[in-house]
């Protein structure tokens, strides 16, 4: 049972003072120490200017790379060392090469049973007349999938680095502002010779690229080379007729969807073939008669997917370096 105290009585107790001190409710210096508010610091503008000038002068003196004896010495030493290192590396490589087996010999250790297996069974197992196409799109399809993804990721990174950033109000990001007067002003405007040549050449180049892609399993060629040819045709068309014409059929959205569908088709098709192959199931995809255009199992559709990705990537690289976007 505690006794009830009045407020006046309580204010005299030790507990009241202690807890007031503990919670910071009382400033012990207030009224005991003379205090004056601090004056705000006002810098002399002349002195500031002088300090800045001195700082710049010191920096200029310290980083005066053209009249620095130590830096010159370092540069000459660096050049001599790097030339000596490269000569040493060249000598080392040449000595190593002189001990390698002779070029063109059939019994080199490189020509082992792996290559032999690809040649002997490649036609039977993949249905592709072109052994290299059968190798990269069937036996080593994971590798090619990785390559397509490398291209895709590189395009995305270049897009991040080079695109003209605009926020929702349409203002250009200050970091990329200097890119804004873009290369469009240097474009050849309606060059008659270029347009005439392009009118003849572009269809031929693109049809040739399609031929290379579709014949990838029958002869030299395939998705990568054919895609590069088609990309070159698109770039020629762009140079002749300008961005207004190409933007009608090829924009960032087109690129995104083509790459997305090609890469996911590749993934799904190869997953199916790896799944059936690993579990010794019967694959429903026929190999066809070797030499026919519809043969080689999955190799033809995979070549088409890879070719689409490569063609779009080539065009996208060019467009992004020209004007920072599609």
């Amino acid at each position: 049972m505690s006794k009830k105290k009045s407020a006046e009585e309580y204010h005299k107790t030790f507990a009241f003072h202690f807890f007031r001190w503990l919670s910071g409710g009382k400033d012990p210096y207030l009224g005991n120490v003379e205090m004056r508010p601090q004056k705000e610091y006002e810098a002399d503008p002349e002195m500031l200017l002088r300090q800045e000038k001195e700082h710049d002068a010191i920096l200029d003196k310290v980083y005066d790379t053209k009249h620095n004896a130590l830096l010159k010495l370092f540069h000459s030493l660096y050049e001599i060392t790097s030339i000596l290192f490269c000569l040493f590396l060249m000598a080392l490589l040449l000595v190593t090469i002189s001990y390698l087996p002779a070029t063109g010999a059939a019994d080199k250790p490189v020509n082992n049973e792996v290559a032999g297996r690809y040649i002997e069974k490649g036609l039977e197992e993949t249905g592709a007349v072109n052994i290299v196409a059968g190798m990269i799109l069937d036996y080593r399809a994971f590798d090619t999938l990785g390559e397509s993804h490398v291209l895709f990721v590189a395009t995305i990174t270049v897009l991040i680095l080079l695109r003209l950033d605009k926020n929702k109000k349409g203002e250009v990001n200050p970091l990329t502002k200097e890119m804004n007067p873009n290369d469009r002003i240097y474009e050849p405007k309606n060059d008659a010779i270029l347009q005439l040549v392009a009118t003849f050449l572009v269809p031929i180049i693109i049809i040739f690229g399609i031929y290379i892609i579709l014949n990838g399993h029958l002869g030299p060629g395939g998705g990568f080379s054919g895609g590069a040819v088609i990309g070159a045709g698109l770039i020629l068309y762009l140079n002749a007729f300008g961005f207004q014409k190409t933007e009608r059929f090829f924009t960032e959205k087109t690129y995104k969807w083509i790459c997305f569908f090609s890469l996911s088709f590749y993934c799904l098709a190869k997953s199916y073939s790896f799944y059936t192959g690993a579990n010794h199931l019967h694959s429903i995809i026929p190999n066809g008669t070797p030499g026919a255009i519809l043969s080689g199992g999955l190799i033809l559709p995979l070549n088409i997917a890879v070719g689409l990705v490569v063609a779009c990537t080539m065009y996208a690289f060019y467009a992004m370096f020209r004007k920072g976007g599609f």
Partner: peptide, 14 residues
């Protein structure tokens, strides 16, 4: 012809 003696090594090409 699918004998090893007829063709070069396809792996370096890939």
């Amino acid at each position: 012809v699918t004998s090893v003696e007829a063709y070069i090594n396809p792996i370096p090409s890939g």
